[in-house]
Amino acid sequence: MITMNKVSKHYGAFQVLTDCTTHVAKGEVVVVCGPSGSGKSTLIKCVNGLEPFQSGEVTVNGISVGDPRTDLPKLRAHVGMVFQNFELFPHMTIVDNLTVAQVKVLGRDPAEAQDKGMALLDRVGLKVQALKYPGQLSGGQQQRVAIARALAMDPICMLFDEPTSALDPEMINEVLDVMSELAQEGMTMMCVTHEMGFAKRVASRVIFMDQGRIVEDDSKDAFFANPRSDRAQQFLAKILQH
């Protein structure tokens, strides 16, 4: 579904990504973790071309992301993305947040888009909030809306960039629950997160990044049982203390 082959990116002299190679098969859930500044967000944004990269190749469903002939908006329309800060559109109601791209990008009939939006809101338990504005919802609720907004586009895979790290602790689980459910339904997911409990329960593989490199790319069990690199061991030790 997603392949990355020797992807490298730099800002001037600063190397953000170095030779990153990995793949995510259909139905797989891959968790990406690593210290702050290690390039996790950059890596995941290369998948839908939000971040350009200078060398290497990324494909989604066989389509090359870096190829200048690729219709990026069209590709992105079917790759869901959830951000750390939700990024709901604050000037639109919740239901409009879910319908605007369906109508304007996919060309769906507004009534059909509305039905789809309401069904998804129901699914994340927020149907009653449909006519409110994002600012009136809690962080956890907003993030569930953001997930529903991405799902409304019928994505072939979903990208998550630290979806719970801006949330108060008591709201983290409501978002992780939605994500776990998605994973169980077979959604292909690439997920930057430090929620190791989630990774243990849901992930197929874990990628560990450090200084722009993919240092470990292993099955979940191998990663948690016995991380090969010192950096990953230290990272795990630190994060599991909390």
């Binding site: 939000l50 559109f89 304007k104 991405a150």
Partner: peptide, 13 residues
């Protein structure tokens, strides 16, 4: 915020 443009682009706009 820059993230708004990113979110719109990510939805295929």
């Amino acid at each position: 915020p820059k993230g708004q443009m990113a979110a719109a682009s990510a939805l295929g706009m």
